[in-house]
Amino acid sequence: MSALRSRRGTAAANLTAVVVFLLFVFPVYWMVSTAFKPAGDIRTFDVSLFPTTVTLENFRTAIGADGFWRFMRNSLIVSAAVTFLAVLVALLAATAVARFRFRGRRTYLLMILVVQMVPLEALVIPMYLTLRDADLLNVLPVLVATYMAFVLPFTVWTLRGFVAALPVELEEAAMIDGASRWGAFWRITFPLMGPGLVATSVFAFIQAWNEFILALTLMERQNQTLPVWLGTFKTAQGTDWGGLMAGSTLYAIPVVIFAVLLQGRIAGGAAAGAVKG
């Protein structure tokens, strides 16, 4: 009786899981499947859930559009550089606030939280004015620097949880065995931080990858990134929906690959990061 109920419960749970999956996946499916539809089948009154004719035309258009690879290259460089630098700097800071109690620690953490409240859109003109006065507009490394401004606080905040979650005892034991503090950290704690570092990297990468308005206004064409490139499909003659969806798909692929590869670690790491402090 109880077993039966439990089996029914499991079936219901599995069914719910499938429904949840479909709900979350449907918009993504719609984007990707549209990318494979020929122009005449896309925005139509007669909606078809599955492509009746499959074409790669939209992907050809997208990849051929206005220097796709240049934008892709810029995006990869900027996002990778931001991720690397932010995680590196945040690792130091996170270790400090998670491992030590020091005067100003509370103020520091408060600052990290508060600066995340500033909307990026409001900072465009101030950043623009600053860079204009310094004559640093349209320099790709400067874009990296501006992204650091909003990626770094979140990265410190997340990473500090990961560091705090790691037992300090192993490190201390190594130190008792004669290792230097640095050696102990490097050999004992750092390897254990893998999941946390990876998860934080994904967060940082996604944020940098998706930024639009700074790339648009602070950079010129040759230094702009993929979110700006997506605008290629909106012309004076109207929107090329197939191209836009193919472009969006291409644009999402690196993030999906990055995230899926590291899937398990994201979840585990995020929890640790959130729970411990």
């Binding site: 460089i77 320099v139 040759q222």
Partner: peptide, 25 residues
């Protein structure tokens, strides 16, 4: 994976921004 990301960042960051900056300036 982490090292790969780092190397990638360092490698690409090494030549391309300079190239792009030259193009823009």
């Amino acid at each position: 994976a982490g090292v790969a990301v780092a190397l990638f960042a360092a490698g690409c960051g090494g030549d391309d921004p300079a190239d792009a900056a030259a193009g823009g300036g």
